[in-house]
């Protein structure tokens, strides 16, 4: 127990940045727009968060800036994919290059600088419950907010009118259009919110998790997030579980490195990527057998009102 509780708490802390990105991507993909640029969006968000926290001294302002920067960068992708009907895969790759390059360019004078970021606090009452308290309620405000956001999105996507519109647009844009829903408006809205959440995910890394700026600090988390959306079959709660599983692997790997095992570091660093591959295969096998629902039907396809498919 003495080992397990800190490990589980660490799993949640390491899983949270990925969770924000995953929730954002679920919203975007539910509308039919795939954003493969998460890695770049997260990096730009991480730098924006770091930079604003450093100059304004307020981590919340930093996180807000990370959200805005993420949404702003994603607007390029949204414009190309929604208005222009461009290839979403290529546009996403361009976005990841642009974001990675821009964050490195802007942050080159700040590498390794530290900031005073967000601090953890014990959540009142709930934090005192044995086992659950130390694992789930000994974190920072962003972790608590992620619980609320996940719960809200479960409700929003499946139980509200705008959520149903969102799913309709992703599953069958033509029918949604006939119902009087503006496909491009829904897609813009949720692609941009998704980008903002990914930016905030990056902000969490720099403002809360490490409290410093390191070039390329996302280290593939943006790509892992995309895999976790598939693992979560586009459902927030399932995706949250996946994120904590991953957080657990990260935490385990760091703990083993700190404990000084005889296993070389590169082997440990490989773990999250190996696991992503394994999990992705597992899910795809199950999907192939019809045991799991597939992606939103229009994912990746542009919609043109005046043309037949």
């Amino acid at each position: 127990m003495d080992v397990l509780i800190p490990m589980m708490a660490a799993a949640i802390r390491s899983g949270t940045p990925v969770l924000y990105a995953v929730l954002g991507e679920i919203l975007a993909e539910r509308s039919g727009v795939m954003n493969l640029g998460l890695e770049g969006v997260m990096l730009v968000g991480a730098f924006a968060g770091f930079s604003v926290t450093q100059s304004a001294g307020d981590p919340y302002l930093g996180l807000a800036a990370a959200f805005c920067a993420g949404a702003l960068l994603t607007s390029v992708h949204a414009f190309l994919c929604i208005t222009f009907g461009g290839n979403q895969v290529v546009s996403g790759l361009a976005l990841s290059m642009l974001g990675g390059g821009m964050s490195a360019m802007m942050g080159r004078g700040h590498i390794g600088e530290t900031i005073n970021g967000l601090m953890p606090f014990k959540f009142p009452i709930l934090g005192d419950i044995p086992l659950i308290g130390p694992v789930f309620f000994s974190h920072d405000a962003m972790v608590y907010a992620s619980y609320l956001l996940t719960a809200f999105l479960c409700f929003f996507i499946f139980r509200t009118r705008p959520g149903m519109n969102l799913r309709a647009v992703g599953e069958n844009p033509r029918a949604a259009d006939a119902m009087g829903i503006s496909v491009s408006r829904v897609r813009y809205t949720f692609t941009l919110i998704g980008g903002g959440l990914s930016g905030a995910a990056g902000g969490y890394l720099s403002v809360v998790y490490t409290q410093m700026w390191v070039e390329g600090m996302t280290a593939g988390r943006g790509w892992i997030a995309i895999a976790l959306v598939i693992f979560g079959i586009w459902r927030p709660l399932r995706a949250m579980f996946g994120c904590y599983l991953f957080g657990g692997v990260y935490a385990l790997q760091m703990r083993m490195q700190a404990a000084g095992t005889s296993i070389p570091a590169p082997m440990l660093l490989m773990l999250p990527y190996l696991m992503t591959l394994a999990v992705l295969t597992f899910i795809s096998v199950r999907k192939g057998r019809g045991m799991l629902p597939g992606a939103p039907a229009s994912l990746g396809n542009p919609f043109r009102r005046e043309e037949r498919e």
């Binding site: 222009f84 009907g85 361009a94 976005l95 642009l98 990675g100 080159r108």
Partner: peptide
């Protein structure tokens, strides 16, 4: 200028070519 500026240019080129295809 950092080498990452080349990465920025590459990303921009890819975006613009994709937009141009439209």
């Amino acid at each position: 200028l950092p080498l990452s500026s080349v990465q920025v240019l590459q990303g921009l080129i890819l975006f613009c070519v994709l937009g141009g295809e439209v």
